[in-house]
Design a protein around this nucleic acid. Structure first.
Lengths: 228, 228, 228, 228
DNA sequence: CATGAATGAGTCTTCATTCAT
DNA sequence: AATGAATGAAGACTCATTCAT
């Protein structure tokens, strides 16, 4: 489970919030009125551009050039670059759902600490197929735009809390020590994942390598490193 | 021990590399010829500005206004904003040394896993006194400038490797399981620290809270979370 | 026939090269989309400014002020000052064609050495009507910009070769000594023309004076200066 | 006789003018008070820089860096870049004298039209030994500075007039047709020389090639190109 | 909704020249 | 005379956003 995977899991909880904000921020824009094919074409081009240059360095010019639309249209569809980025994230999240749902379903009956590798696996499968969508989550981290950073921080909070809730369930079910700080474990997993698993996937690691790393981390978390 | 603390520990090993690069990149600039008081005034103003707006959003105009120097002078001192940032990092690192040295000394005789909290403590003490210098490390992460990001990645590599080497020493000395992947533990600690401990210090956590969090993390790493 | 006249004759052979290069260098700029009246207004103002201050000393600020357009528009039309200058040269060349074509036509049946004065005349007629366009060629020589100088050298090569080809034709037709180095004569004519005839036209010489000078030069070239 | 050669011959007549102007423009500067070795070091570095980047693109910074002198000193020695250039030209002219004097002496008894090749030869010899000094004359032509261009034009006037006077002497002595316009011939020679002979020398032509070109030009001027 | 030209504030960077020591 | 820091005017270029058709 990599950074972006987490984002998408979050989406299950969080997507309404985002939509609500969007409704407040961008009530009159016409992007949703476009035929879906065109919408996808624009989003794909935007995604490619942002992955290529990073969100901050991407200009509206870059986007309209890549998307092959007139400058003016961009501002008819979106408020500004941030607004387009929001749509984009939403779009990617929707694509992602399908991959995670089955594994998340299994969490209802199986302990998280045994399922962790499979969650990572599901995320990797998505990344293999939708490489560009997968990369996009990383762009949230590369940006120095304050609104994007706020958004990222909210994502983090949800991601951490998601893991923490899994840990708590496992505690309730008697798999884990009762005195463990679930939020702390959530943070350890989250921070490791968004950084190291992302690097592994993005850096060309094989499925086996990635799975092995996930196992190794979970093993340490479960059993510790101290001798005796 | 937060992100920037790690940077500074790295500096003990790494500083020559940084200095060497600077020598290559910026050999003819005259900043070092200024009287120290003026130099400090400029660096302080630059630091404040960058902490305030972030490295990317900070413009040369912002800096010269804050430092009260003419535009042209800036370019006589530095090649560009990046160059000034480099000087700044160096300067901060130099300031930081004093705080970390004593604890690092103790690592020669005591196991890292027991000393970890004290390392964190030393970093916190520095942060208490030099709040702005402390924050600066965070700006490395907020930047989307590619050179800064390269630098940050190099710092990360060193930081992870530093922890990993501590772990290996503890393994050799029989404190830790022999089959533990030291680099993996390094990554877990590093990523947790730069993110969560920084947030705690920066977010106004008390010394006790911070120490307690460090203890708790190390406890999990040592003993794991699995029951029985 | 002065320097720039030669340029324009060259254009008959060379214009595709120039256009091709432009296509490569400046494919996306939108100057050509403007209504012709506005385009002409901008080019006229640019020409006036460059004639006034010289290409090198002319700044983009000067041009936008003279043309009455916003700074940003300039960069929407052109890549940079050089690009604008290229358009300008092209524009002037197009204007010039009409004047030279009829005389060049006559070269098919009459010897160049007898027609030379008429070629000069045609160039002068153009200069009389389009004084600013005429001066522009001189600006190529005044510039120390390396790209402009390269362009100028290419123009020179073509100009010299053009005269040389006329000389060769006259040789074939038995008007001239067979052992004369045609390229050398081309160079003599070219260098004299771009410098001295330009000075004469630009310095206010009368049509008669100019014609007389052209005659005198050609007389020396034909018959030499040695007695007996 | 190449471009710069002409300049130096001019110097024989013109140098007082230059000195006078300098006296007017720069009465209090201290360059002449420096020890000769230092003066030469500075002039050599300046010459190298100007030949390298061209007069216009050369900045005072470039010069002080190349010469290894402090910024402030430059302005103690010279008024500005132009002033330094003037000194430089003067210095080069002085160096050149020796090469041309002997040939010019022979003009008192031999006809110019027969001596022309030897004049060219003497200039080439200078160029072979003092390559950088030779190139410097070309920089006068590359500049778009209006003062430099004025100076260049004055040099041209003197150069043309010098040739014209030689022609007149030959006419008086019965070598040349009486009705030939001596100034026109002067212009033809001058313009050919500064352009084509310079290119030949600078472009790596051999002594034989250069001499042959000089002969060929003079042959055309003497006997013309017309058949019969 | 489509289109793309219009706008000008804002950024980086260079440089000649002066000044204080 | 030596030194090199101080100064700010000026230039190139970018870009988000609006507007008119």
């Amino acid at each position: 489970m990599t950074y972006y995977d987490t984002c998408v899991i979050i989406a299950i909880y969080d997507i309404n919030v985002i939509i609500t904000e969007r409704m407040v921020l961008v009530p009159y824009k016409t992007f949703m009125n476009l035929p879906e094919a065109k919408r996808n074409r624009i989003l794909t081009a935007t995604m490619r551009t942002i992955n290529d240059k990073g969100y901050d360095k991407t200009t509206v010019s870059d986007i309209v050039k890549a998307a092959g639309i007139p400058r003016g249209s961009f501002y008819q569809y979106f408020n500004d670059k941030l607004d387009a980025f929001m749509y984009l994230l939403e779009w990617v999240q929707t694509q992602k759902m399908a991959y995670m749902k089955p594994v998340l379903k299994r969490l209802e009956t199986e302990p998280f600490i045994e399922l962790y590798e499979d969650l990572v696996d599901a995320g990797v499968q998505f990344a293999r197929v939708n490489n560009e969508a997968y990369q996009l989550g990383y762009q949230l981290y590369r940006s120095s735009d304050s609104t994007v950073q706020q958004l990222t921080r909210r994502f983090e909070t949800y991601g951490v809390e998601l893991y923490a809730s899994f840990i708590r369930t496992d505690q309730k079910n008697g798999y884990l020590k009762a005195d463990v700080d679930s939020e702390l474990v959530g943070k350890m997993l989250y921070n490791f994942n968004v950084k190291e698993l992302f690097n592994l996937v993005y850096g060309g690691g094989s499925d086996a390598e990635i799975r092995h790393t996930a196992q190794a981390v979970m093993h340490i978390i479960k059993y510790g490193i101290k001798k005796g």
